[in-house]
Amino acid sequence: MSGVPISWYLTLSAILFTLGVAGFLFRRNIITVFMSIELMLNAVNLSFIAFSYRLQQVNGHLIAFFVMVVAAAEAAVGLAIILTVFKNRQTLNIDEIDSMKN
């Protein structure tokens, strides 16, 4: 029985990453934008773990683990920021948050 080429995993990771970038660029809801970033981080983690398999090392897992921790911390702060923004403006549309254009 043939195994799965590692490049399939990497391709999947690339696709997810690109989808994340697309979401970041094209979505207007701040929370969705933020979720797109999470998607990108997940894609990166998949790469780390796939590479780790290829290299037969545990190191990639650890990096992925740190990425998760950081993502959690980022989520806490990010959502707090989003809350303050919503409290002051009653909107989550990123296009409406532009009080500083000349």
């Binding site: 990497l10 990771s13 990453f17 994340g20 970041f24 701040i30 934008v33 933020f34 970033i37 990108m40 981080l41 894609a43 990166v44 790469s47 780390f48 796939a50 590479f51 290829r54 290299l55 190191n59 990639g60 990096i63 990425v67 950081v70 980022e74 702060v77 990010g78 920021i81 989003i82 303050t84 923004v85 990123i94 948050i97």
Partner: peptide, 24 residues
């Protein structure tokens, strides 16, 4: 703060992807 946060995290993801490729 919001813009700094969103774009900063976005940039971090790119940076990490580069790290992943280097690692691999």
């Amino acid at each position: 703060a919001l813009k700094y946060f969103l774009l900063g995290s976005f940039a971090t993801a790119f940076f990490l992807y580069g790290v992943a490729l280097i690692y691999g």
